[in-house]
Design a binder for these strands. Structure first.
Lengths: 105, 105
DNA sequence: CTTGTATTCAACCTCTCGGTTGAGTACGAA
DNA sequence: TTCGTACTCAACCGAGAGGTTGAATACAAG
């Protein structure tokens, strides 16, 4: 697990991280604010944010004492791109199968 | 990590499993055939297939000594559904921001 | 019945993940 | 400068992931 695709999928495999991503669609948020919604320590949330940042799903900016997390939606395209590619191939396969059956009933 | 969404994301976080999924878009395949393309033991591939099955990404059928793996594309919808929901929310947020800026230039 | 082939089960190992606590850093306010 | 707040770093822990090897199971073919 070292490429960006693997990191992105792995990042979203955790429910807390998915919840963080969901909240960041509404607004940029600080670590403390994000941590207030979860029953884990602030340090744990800080770790989750680092994972999301490494996966390219968020960027971070410092403003005084606070560190604001900002959602980066581009990685979403990477994921849907991969999924759609193979979904399309699978559908194409069934299409061909249907053709064969139609030709040889 | 216990819900179906988490299992699906986690399953696709591994490069070998993504490659297996990719190959299964072309045709159903046996364990031995899938293992022949990877530099890990047959048992390791067998484990990967179990993970994919638990995640709902494949189904399996026995035919004689062979166990055929078959791709189930429905879980793809679960993933793209989640992603698109939040991508849309994020875009909506920028839309509103643009409106505000346009109104208060 | 025996042998070979396809696959899984079981035990084990190592590394990573997600969590904790405690200390350190960076900044704002008084 | 001192104090409180926001956050990260570091060390540790338990559980699980992903790999291995060796034995067991299931079936086909002689």
């Amino acid at each position: 697990m070292d490429d960006e695709l693997s990191r992105a999928f792995a990042a979203l495999a955790d429910p807390i991280r998915r919840d963080i991503v969901a909240r960041l669609t509404a607004d940029d948020m600080t670590v403390t604010e994000l941590a207030s919604h979860h029953d884990v320590s602030l340090q744990a949330v800080s770790k989750h944010l680092r994972v999301l940042e490494t996966a390219g799903l968020i960027s971070r900016r410092r403003d005084g004492q606070q560190r604001w997390a900002h959602l980066e939606v581009d990685v979403f395209d990477l994921l849907t791109g991969w999924i759609d590619t193979y979904r399309r191939r699978a559908e194409l396969r069934y299409q061909r199968l249907d053709d064969v059956l139609r030709r040889n009933p």
